[in-house]
Amino acid sequence: MEFRLSPELQALSDEAHAVGRRAAERQEIREDSWLIGTSLEFSEELAQRGWLGMTWPVDQGGGGRTALERFVVFEALIAEGAPVATSWFADRQIGPTLMQFGTQQQCDRWLPDIISGTSAWCIGMSEPAAGSDVAALQTSAVSVPGPQGGTNNRGWVVNGQKVWTSGAAHADWCYLIARTDPTAAPHAGLSEFVVDMSAPGIEVRPILDATGNAHFCEVFFSDVEVPADHLVG
Rank of each mutant, 00 (worst) to 15 (best):
M1A: 12
E2T: 13
F3Q: 11
R4G: 14
L5V: 03
S6C: 01
P7M: 01
A11P: 04
S13A: 14
E15M: 10
H17A: 11
H17N: 11
A18N: 05
A18L: 14
V19F: 10
R22Q: 12
A23P: 01
R26D: 05
R26I: 07
Q27A: 09
E31I: 13
D32N: 14
L35C: 10
L35S: 06
F42L: 05
S43Q: 11
S43G: 15
L46S: 03
Q48D: 13
Q48I: 03
R49Q: 10
R49G: 04
G50R: 12
W51R: 06
L52V: 08
G53N: 01
G53V: 03
D59Q: 15
G63F: 06
G64S: 09
G64Q: 08
E75R: 15
I78V: 15
I78R: 06
A90T: 03
D91E: 09
Q93D: 12
T97M: 12
T97V: 10
L98W: 05
Q100K: 10
F101G: 10
G102R: 00
Q104F: 06
Q105K: 15
Q106D: 05
Q106M: 11
W110I: 08
W110S: 01
W110M: 04
I115M: 13
I115L: 15
G117W: 00
G117M: 01
G117H: 02
T118W: 02
S119P: 04
C122R: 00
I123M: 11
M125W: 11
M125Y: 09
A129S: 13
A129Y: 13
G131I: 05
G131N: 08
V134H: 11
Q138P: 04
Q138A: 14
Q138E: 12
T139A: 07
S140K: 09
A141K: 08
P147G: 08
G149N: 02
G150I: 08
T151M: 14
T151Q: 15
T151F: 13
T151R: 14
N153I: 11
N153Q: 13
R154C: 09
W156C: 07
G160S: 08
Q161P: 06
V163Y: 01
W164D: 09
S166R: 11
A168T: 01
H170A: 14
W173T: 03
W173H: 02
C174D: 00
R179C: 07
T180E: 03
P186G: 09
A188I: 07
E192M: 13
A199I: 00
P200S: 06
E203V: 12
I207L: 07
L208A: 11
A210F: 13
T211W: 13
N213G: 13
H215N: 15
F216Q: 15
F220C: 11
F221A: 01
F221G: 00
S222N: 15
V226Y: 09
D229R: 04
L231S: 02
V232I: 09
V232K: 02
